[in-house]
Amino acid sequence: MSHTPHELAEEFPDKVAQMHDLKESDAHFRKLFDEYHEVNRAVHRAETNVEPTDEAHEATLRKQRMALKDQIAAML
C-alpha cells in the first residue's frame, strides 16, 4: 500500500500517545479519529486517481477532512 499523506500521527507527532489514550477512553474521539482516516483515505484515492471523482466532490472531501482535523485538534 502506498503512503497516505495527512495521517494524524504525522499531523500531530507529539500527540500520538494522547491520541492512543483518547481512542481507548473516549468514544466520541474514536469516532472522529476513525472518520478522519476514512475521509483521508478517500481523498488520497481521489488525488491518485485510484477512485477518480469530480473536483467538487474532492473539494468537499478535503473540507470534511479539515473539519474533522480541527475537531480532533481541539480535543488534543
Rank of each mutant, 00 (worst) to 15 (best):
Q64P: 00
A56Q: 11
T48Y: 01
R41P: 03
A9C: 12
F29E: 14
R30Y: 08
E10R: 03
E38H: 13
M75S: 05
E55R: 09
M75A: 06
R65W: 04
D70K: 12
K15I: 03
E55F: 05
E38K: 14
Y36C: 03
A59E: 15
A73E: 13
P52H: 06
E47M: 04
P13C: 01
H44P: 01
R45H: 11
P52N: 09
A59G: 04
E24Q: 12
E10F: 00
E11Y: 00
D21Q: 12
E38Q: 14
H37T: 14
N40H: 11
Q71T: 09
Q64A: 01
M19S: 07
R45E: 14
D21V: 06
N40W: 12
V50R: 07
T53D: 08
V39A: 13
P13E: 10
R30M: 05
E7H: 09
L22G: 07
A9E: 15
R41V: 14
K63R: 15
A46N: 05
V50L: 05
R45C: 11
E11H: 00
K63P: 00
A74I: 01
L8C: 04
A27Q: 13
A56K: 10
H20K: 10
L32T: 07
E47D: 15
H28K: 15
A17F: 02
E51A: 06
